[in-house]
């Protein structure tokens, strides 16, 4: 093996010492960390710029919509009042109680053994449960004279027929006697003299009346 003489050992030692310089190593590490930080910052800045762009777009959209919405809100009050008035008119017109079909129905029901002497009635508006529409309540009075072998039975049949007939047309229907008295008068019917009874029936109906008024064409009794 040939003899090898290193005449630069001092220089090599200095170079090795320089390579192991902790400050230099620390500077490299710090530089690396700074580079990572810069990269993170740039990424964050990019994200921020993108989100700022989104915000600017939304602000522009809102700035465009807000005056329109305020204008709509202003005009909505007047339009809503128009709609409400129209709806109230329709409700008021359609919610009326029609007397003509009621009268027609009573005329149809009354048998030939009964003479009506007085027909009356009045309609009131009844407030419903919260959240429901008010309903019309009609109290109808039918007074008359019933004749027959058993005039009280004739009057009772009329009361029941009134309750049943109007019960089909209204949600609630009740008919009750206000009075039912035997009379000393007699009437002639089909060649016979029959005893009579005077009666007064109160018919109460409540609920929507869908039927529109129709012309009466029943023959008189």
């Amino acid at each position: 093996m040939p003899l090898h003489l290193n005449l630069y050992h001092e220089i090599d030692r200095q170079k090795a010492a320089s390579r192991r310089d902790p400050l230099k190593i620390a500077a490299y590490i710090l530089g690396f960390i700074v580079a990572i930080f810069v990269a993170m910052y740039v990424i964050e800045l990019g994200k921020n710029a993108s989100i700022q762009g989104d915000l600017a777009k939304l602000k522009a959209e809102f700035d465009g919509l807000d005056p329109k919405a305020k204008e709509v809100e202003r005009s909505e009050k007047a339009l809503k009042q128009t709609l409400d008035t129209s709806a109230q008119f329709v409700k008021s017109i359609e919610g009326r109680f029609y007397w003509a079909p009621t009268l027609q129905e009573v005329i149809k029901i009354v048998p030939r053994e009964v003479q009506i002497t007085r027909f009356g009635g009045n309609v009131t508006t009844v407030a419903g449960a919260p959240g429901t529409e008010p309903t019309k309540k009609a109290v109808i009075t039918v007074d008359g004279i019933a004749c027959g072998a058993d005039p009280r039975r004739v009057a009772e049949d009329l009361r029941q027929t009134l309750a049943e007939t109007f019960g089909k047309k209204y949600k609630t229907s009740t008919a009750s006697f206000r009075q039912l008295d035997d009379s000393t008068d007699t009437v002639a019917l089909d060649g016979r003299n029959l005893p009579t009874a005077t009666f007064g029936i109160t018919l109460t109906v409540e609920g929507a009346n869908d039927a529109a008024a129709t012309a009466t064409n029943t023959t008189p009794r």
């Binding site: 008021s92 009326r96 309609v123 008024a213």
Partner: peptide
Amino acid sequence: LAALENTEPLISVETCN
């Protein structure tokens, strides 16, 4: 009465005797 109720929607009959 039927004609009145049909042709005058602003009229509402309250009592009838």
